[in-house]
Design a protein around this nucleic acid. Structure first.
Lengths: 341, 341
DNA sequence: GGCCGTAGTCGAAGCGCTTCGACCCTTCTA
DNA sequence: TAGAAGGGTCGAAGCGCTTCGACTACGGCC
């Protein structure tokens, strides 16, 4: 393995000079710099990560904790993870993948061992037990999601309340008066992740303002359970003309069901989803949807981490503004006497 | 930060003794061990990762390279990644997440910087440009997937040829004589990942032996493209009574289409999928399927890596035996005069 | 012309750990 | 009962890097 000392000898300078060429922390003459860089190139030198971490007290690693379960919004998680890894690389950081399994212990372990310089936590619950050790840590932490108490922490998330409001507005604008929400699986609500509730409250509030009737039903992603849920909704509110879906897995079954029931989308029933764009585009009827900006969230999280590590900027809660893309699944409310298209 | 020396002082022993308690590389009296362990506990000591890596030349990190693209079998990738991370932890390793973006350079970087002790590569192509630097590296590497040349490398993958054969056998056993394969997107075949071709050759061979007619069509995952593909298949081979689907994204659109065309599954048409169990279970008709054993693959890969790092075992190609689970989407071929159930 | 400030370089002291050789003491064996 | 054989512990030498202080040389200033 080629070391700093080898490079120094090859270039005819001292080890510290090579180090300063690498870090740029002291000025180096152009000629020396060129010579050193040529030696690095020729010898194929890569700094030893362990030695560097030991000496500088910086590992250049960011830990990313992803949820263990693979039953929910997996593509979003994956997309965030990849965005985090990619963005981190552009700032010279690598990413350590932790699973939720270890929970708070993982936070303590990383902090204690100095394995990573900072942590990014996904799938944050309202009262997450990883937060106390994270607050106590001397390393910066950024959450993707929004806990009950955010002081001392940085957070990035979609503004789900605004997303809910946006759905309500769009449907109201199309003339709909009765809306049903097909929500996440009951387990999601029980785990108190918060985002589902925030969407709902945004929806409720704006529906109130606009005079819409709103019905909410949690729902598993399976075909059977979507079928049961939709059945109950139409029983209870036969006047329902629009659905808001916040459950990736439920979109396809819902469209299939409506088709089967001879309810045309969007002519008879409108559907608006809150889901990744990819899901919306691939659906059997391209979905008018509010995007889950996975990449943007990952990128933001890394940028906050990097800023904190550079001593810039403090704690910050960033709620990304939702954007609704009009596709084909939502249209004007059908009223009695409407001419067929 | 509490160090080894702090623990040593607290326990009244030398630093090396603490180190030996931790590593178990020399025998330590029960009383000393107990005293040291109590000190570690009380002080909340965690070994510094950088120092340990520097001194021992082992980082206890395994690098995992996942594909950058998020357009294909994402849940499988995620499941593998999580299985790798979880299994690695049980052996005391952490996982570094690399994206495919850096390609061969990432392999060289990890090797040069000693950031990780070993590498696991996913989404391996037949002639992958990461393989030469991996072969040249002094650290063990394990592939998830099967390249054209495997010498000097360990590989784990599903035996896709056997999976194909298994599908053919199952359908033949149910009396089907004409089978159509809905394959991966054309891009997958062009990228030469190999697994799609292996499935096909397994299918072809067994179909030949069993006297079945086989038709293969690549297909994008979108509803429109599945619709077009199925249309062409029935035009060309009206006698087709069974589908083999190797394309996660295509299963739901296919079932929806068949329903729309009034072809009942499994009464009129049988469907067998090669996909993760989760997809099979959640489909509108639970799919008889050959599972993609994501977890098992991840686990195996880590175990091979760990064995190699321990000096045990050499290069090995492990092809996991496929298993077919009977669910509801495949049944006996309908023949003229069949009584209705 | 002496003095200061600055750019450019070097040497040496660690960072916190592992590991080798050395040492002491007890126990077993001939 | 002497010597060998281990078990248990310690001290010290690194691992490859960063960083601090010190040193040289040079130009500008009064």
């Amino acid at each position: 393995m080629v070391t700093l000392a080898d490079v120094a000898q090859h270039a005819g300078v001292s080890a510290s000079t090579v180090s300063y060429v690498l870090s740029g922390k002291r000025s180096i003459s152009a000629s020396t710099r060129a010579r050193v860089e040529r030696s690095i190139e020729q010898l194929g030198y890569h700094p030893n990560a362990g030695a560097r971490a030991l000496a500088s007290n910086r590992s250049n690693i960011i830990a990313l904790m992803v949820p263990l379960r693979t039953d929910m919004y997996v593509p979003v998680m994956m997309e965030i993870a990849i965005a985090v890894a990619t963005t981190a690389r552009t700032y010279g950081y690598d990413v350590l993948l932790l699973t939720g399994e270890e929970g708070a212990d993982a936070v303590r372990r990383i902090e204690g061992s100095a394995l990573a310089d900072a942590m990014i936590l996904m799938d944050v619950e309202l009262h997450d037990d990883r937060l106390p050790p994270l607050r106590a840590a001397r390393r910066p932490g950024v959450l993707i999601g929004l806990p009950a108490e955010t002081d001392g922490l940085s957070c990035v998330d979609l503004d789900f309340a605004a997303a809910g409001a946006l759905c309500a507005e769009h449907l109201a604008g199309l003339g709909h008066r009765e809306i049903a929400v097909i929500g996440e699986a009951p387990g999601v609500y029980e785990r108190l992740t918060g985002f589902a509730e925030r969407t709902l409250s945004g929806l409720r509030e704006r529906c109130g303002e606009l005079g819409l009737r709103l019905l909410h039903r949690p729902c598993e992603g399976s075909y059977a359970s979507v079928s049961a849920t939709v059945g109950r909704i139409f029983d209870e509110r036969p006047g329902t003309t629009a659905f808001v879906v916040q459950n990736e897995a439920a979109t396809d079954p819902l469209l299939a069901l409506l088709r089967q029931q001879r309810r045309a989308v969007p002519e008879d029933v409108s559907v608006v989803a809150i889901c990744p764009d990819q899901v919306a585009v691939q659906a059997s009827v391209p979905l008018t949807s509010v995007a889950l900006p996975a990449q943007e969230m990952g990128r933001h999280a890394v940028e906050q981490v990097v800023a904190k590590l550079a001593g810039r900027g403090g704690d910050e809660v960033v709620l990304l503004k939702p954007e609704l893309t009009v596709r084909e699944s939502a249209g004007p409310r059908a009223v009695a006497g409407d001419p067929l298209p």
